[in-house]
Amino acid sequence: MKKRFVNIGPIDRIPLGQGISFLIDGEEIAVFRSRGGEIFAIENRCPHRQGPLSEGIIGGGKVICPLHGHKFDLATGQGGEKHECVRVFKVWKDEDQIFMEWPTAKIKPQEKDCAMVGL
């Protein structure tokens, strides 16, 4: 099966301990670089009120949405609220470049326990 990859650019493009956002195929993705050197990629919009997660404070593997403080696990996408979660993407470092796996199908809202997002 073919997979698509995205080259996000050099790692130092992301300020240490922060995130930045990318527009890929019309989707907004937040990519974070922790102080410990890990890289994470998640969808950029908080399911609560669409806050930009890339602007959130990270630490201990979590990001806090800057608008209302909802929290998400950077590795799994699980939110602090049971019914909230964000999609996560596979990212890795090759030399000093960051790559991300990009789904081939158009991204659809997930069938997840977050059906109440529409509220």
Binding site: K2, V6, N7, L23, N44
Partner: peptide
């Protein structure tokens, strides 16, 4: 104060496809 401080979302294109 640091590079990228005032940058908005960056546009990225899907660059390549490869075998899994």
């Amino acid at each position: 104060a640091y590079s990228g401080q005032f940058e908005g979302p960056r546009l990225i294109e899907v660059l390549r496809e490869a075998e899994n």
